[in-house]
Design a protein around this nucleic acid. Structure first.
Lengths: 241, 241
DNA sequence: CGGATGGTTGATAGTCATCAAGATGGGTGG
DNA sequence: CCACCCATCTTGATGACTATCAACCATCCG
């Protein structure tokens, strides 16, 4: 198999699994899009993809692994902005100013697809669904940020952590992975930082939920034992009544 | 002057002041865009523009006034998601799902331009700068939400309110209004709700900042007396060293 | 004038941060 | 292969910030 063939195949996977463009691109259109997506580049744990202030040229689709985005304030304190799992797109916050407002680091060995943004701009004028996809992708991020806003401003520590776990669970489920048994790719410190809590609080809540038979926690391994109860903790409500 | 002429003129203002498309549309292109923007519709105080779950068809550019977006949780509690001032665009969070995740109410008499989204989609394939503008607009919102995330998860009540006031100040300044003397269009309750604080805390912080000669507060009228000091309160830092 | 809404002020209590110390565990080098 | 070490995590004790409860004041409007 020639190198360019492998490339095309890997990039078809990008379109289908990585970029997740959901519908109705023709195969020809997919080829055009794929041709612009650069080969996935593998990165070790703790590698920096880009840093605050770096020039923005490309979006990145996560193929495998997990990453965090963060900023540093003047006193050097880290602020975790979000986490990225396979299938998610990195860099949407950088389009506006042409430089990245956040830094990105891998939390474990990861692979990314680089997608030059000027190509997206050019192609999205020709391929209607790609433009629609981009608008929806950006809009979805805004909507999710609003939910996060609610989480951070109104919820207790227990609700925050419950919601966080359910969110991760849902994202794993979307990727055909187990929604009840998974591994936290990030440290307790990162979780605490992201949720605006102290590490100690995260630790305490997790052990409390474990004592209550809602979770089983072993280091980074988490098993959701009682999904309904976890929903109650997170939302004060339960999907089945 | 014919009705259609008036329409065009009002809509040129939309492009320049309302939509704030910053650069390089030709006059012909502006005419095309403007032709699709519906006449500003005036709304009284406390009017509902749309509600959670309503079908999404248009974005709205604020021409005058002020609005808030909010959701209601199951117990009927309101959660204020954000505020909109003249020149800002409402509805970006609705593109993804095709229905509005939030409700919008006017905080005072306001006027909006309705911009059908299918027209934006169609035109942004023809007019490069419009597509770029839309990408940047959406991206900017994401970036600002990240800053809000930081505000809510890490800052104290005083820092939150200081930052909130400076944010408003900046937005008024962008609109050629006084950045030091302005009127809060929203109630203390809305501010508290938005920032994840109790009304009492907002009230206390405002009076404290007034005692410290940082602000002058009279009901909804606010005057920033000591901008540097307010920056210190908000960010622990001061623009001039 | 009186009720309603919104805002301010005071007293108390609860949640969570902070400080401190111990436990666990993964990685490295001897 | 083991021992050590550093980072991460957990657990406990204390205290601070801010929510809550309660009362009072101002303003608006019928």
């Amino acid at each position: 198999m020639s190198d360019s063939q492998k490339f095309t195949i890997s990039c078809h996977q990008c379109s289908l699994n990585g970029l997740c463009i959901p519908t109705s691109l023709t195969f020809d259109e997919m080829d055009v899009v794929d041709a612009e997506i650069k080969r996935a580049k593998p990165l070790q744990k703790n590698a920096t993809v880009f840093e605050t202030g770096d020039k923005f040229t490309s979006l990145y689709a996560v193929r495998s692994g997990a990453l965090k985005s963060y900023t540093l304030d003047l006193s050097g304190e880290e602020h975790v902005v979000g986490f990225f799992l396979p299938g998610e797109i990195i860099g949407l916050d950088a389009i506006d100013e042409g430089q990245h407002p956040t830094s990105i680091k891998t939390l474990e060995t990861s692979a990314l697809c680089e997608i030059p943004f000027d190509q997206i701009e050019a192609l999205s004028k020709k391929i209607h669904n790609l433009q629609t996809y981009m608008y929806k992708l950006l809009s979805k991020e805004i909507r999710e940020d609003q939910q996060l806003h609610f989480l951070l401003s109104k919820k207790t520590a227990e609700e925050k952590i419950g919601t966080f776990l359910l969110n991760l669970s849902g994202r794993y489920k979307d990727r055909q992975l187990s929604p009840t048994l998974f591994r936290l790719p990030m440290s307790r410190t990162d979780i605490a930082n992201f949720l605006g809590l102290a590490v100690e609080t995260v630790s305490r809540v997790l052990t409390r939920l474990q004592r209550q038979q809602v979770l089983k926690v072993d280091g980074k391994e988490v098993e959701i034992l009682d999904h309904n109860q976890l929903c109650l903790v997170a939302f004060n409500e339960c999907p089945n009544g």
